[in-house]
Design a protein around this nucleic acid. Structure first.
Lengths: 336, 336
DNA sequence: TTGAAAGCGCTACCAG
DNA sequence: CTGGTAGCGCTTTCAA
């Protein structure tokens, strides 16, 4: 691999000059530019980005920390960050496989070791305190999908409580009275808040939801199936289910239909997230749109700004997003 | 950000010693280890991975080049590579957004600039010649999802021709006689080979497929819908469709049902890829399993071996994979 | 407009 | 066992 010295030697100039043409430096003669450019091409010279970063002290990588890539939700998140990375001529450094607070911490540390200054992290396991500390230490770190009061201006998040409320209002407006819920057993806040918002509105309307009709499972297609089986086994009547996410909702529909229930005629199912596939399930899934890709882009842009020289401290700012109801075919008016 | 010098100064030792404890070097006294470790902790010292890479000339990043992250197929591919990266204590450097030969080339160049030695690339636009050249230049580069005779030992690929044949045999065995096909207008080889294998077996069985019943579109859910609409509009009869991938197949089913056809009773639909969602579509999709994640892991491991010191040149090796028929609910025996 | 040289943070070699 | 030091590939003064 040719180095800048090789180029300089062969072109008969100093390394400084080569560096100048590399960086389109201010004062180089056209003659030198031509000469050096030719040699660079001949030698197939590629500058070493790491060496450059070392001396300039600036990185051109954008870090992303997510649980995994297989979940389309996180894939969209990563994609959003990638979009702004490309736009800024930066590259994605990705860490996944988060199963514990330790592995999340380690993922972030790896980014620090690489001297990655800008990062968007989705953490579900680290404590508020740890995250606050981290955010204060790393000026370009933005949290996504999590809200911590003390560092609100560094959080891009979705109002899950409001999402639950919107869901309840929708189902109530559809004349439903007997509800079931399927929630996730993970993510400390999200499922809890969605459920809480849902129940809050229900209660205001004088409707209660039986404890046996709230089930928890893995937030996956299989989890939705399993939870639905248990719901059915409980033997209590319900005409609408509010499900934690689309994957579980589609699993729920699957099990419902396997057991002879027609969706939405017998039972309405409402999902959450609005991942692409929800548009193509049969019946098409009614759900709440979670604009994760845009949020990821926003988070990346904020992180980028934070590391810019003249960054104004946007304390007091809030980056809350409200989910939007997308009514498709899996929810309908209850007539009986 | 504290450097090794700071640590050395405060601990009252030389940078060499600090480096030794950092790398668990062979000869350091316990006393020094303790002293230095404490200072490192106090200073919150994090070694600079780039500086280390610069002097050791070895990288700990694993590069991946794919078209995008939103397509679950590519997300699985990336995930496979990530799996081995984590296992080897390396990190993923990701490049997406490939729309042209230029952007593919640029993505690879960015990895080279970062001095990434190990990379798995999925290229659809670069020519065989360019790729051969690249592979010869970069010893740790492995191609996935593409087969080039001259560098077969650097390609991890799926036998699409055979996949098409398997599909045809399956549908033929189910007593079908009138076929339609939906193919992709992209990826030079894959769709062509699948179709070719499919038609080859059909021809051997004395069955022909009308040109109007072969449609091409974007390899997406929408593309599948559009193509199916055109197929229906052609007005020719068919009882089975072989579709390029699962996304298109689910789009096809969607349109079919919207038009009053029951799948599989009226029309059988066979997909390709076996992405997770195919298991949860209604009806559950029959398809050909494309073990992309395992293939990605294999590719990453081969790339890793290639860059190891004692790498035996595994010329003559072949890394061909055969898709496996997964019979679910969208294909059935034709009785009428 | 150009070159010499200092150094970015780190490793590795050579003395001691 | 430890310290001094050269240098990885590059940028950036400072002089010329």
């Amino acid at each position: 691999m040719a180095t800048i010295k090789d180029v300089a030697r062969i072109a008969g100039v100093s390394v400084a000059s080569v560096s100048r043409v590399l960086n389109k430096g201010p004062k180089v003669s056209q003659k030198t530019i031509d000469k050096v450019s030719k040699v660079m091409k001949d030698l197939n010279y590629t500058p070493d980005a790491n060496a450059r970063a070392l001396v300039t002290q600036k990185s051109t990588t954008l870090g992303v920390v997510i649980p995994d890539l297989v979940d389309p939700f996180f894939a969209s998140l990563a994609n959003g960050v990638e979009l702004v990375a490309r736009q800024k001529n930066m590259q994605l450094l990705l860490s996944t496989g988060l199963v514990s607070a330790e592995s999340e911490m380690q993922a972030i540390n790896l980014l620090i070791e690489r001297r990655c200054k800008v990062m968007v992290v989705h953490s579900k396991k680290l404590s508020d305190e740890t995250l606050i500390e981290l955010v204060n230490k790393i000026s370009g770190l933005v949290l996504i999908d999590r809200f911590i009061e003390e560092i609100a201006h560094r959080c891009v998040w979705l109002d899950n409580l409001e999402g639950g409320k919107i869901a309840a209002r929708h189902l109530l407006a559809l004349n439903h009275q007997n509800f079931a819920c399927i929630s996730s057993k993970y993510r400390i806040d999200d499922p809890r808040l969605r459920l809480q918002g849902f129940q809050h509105v229900l209660k205001s309307a004088g409707v209660d939801i039986a404890p046996e009709l709230i089930e928890y499972d893995e937030p996956t297609l299989q989890g939705g199936e399993l939870a639905t089986q248990r719901l059915l086994a409980a033997g209590k009547e319900f005409s609408a289910i509010f499900v934690y996410n689309d994957a579980m909702a589609i699993g729920a529909i699957s099990t419902l239909e396997d057991n002879g229930f027609k969706v939405p005629y017998d039972i309405s199912v409402l999902g959450f997230d609005d991942v692409l596939l929800s548009r193509y399930s049969r019946p098409k899934l009614s759900t709440l749109n979670y604009p994760i890709e845009q949020m990821a882009m926003q988070a990346a842009n904020i992180a980028l700004e934070l590391t810019a020289k003249d960054s104004k401290p946007n304390i007091g700012m809030s980056f809350k997003h409200i989910p939007r109801l997308v009514k498709r075919e899996s929810t309908s008016f209850k007539t009986s």
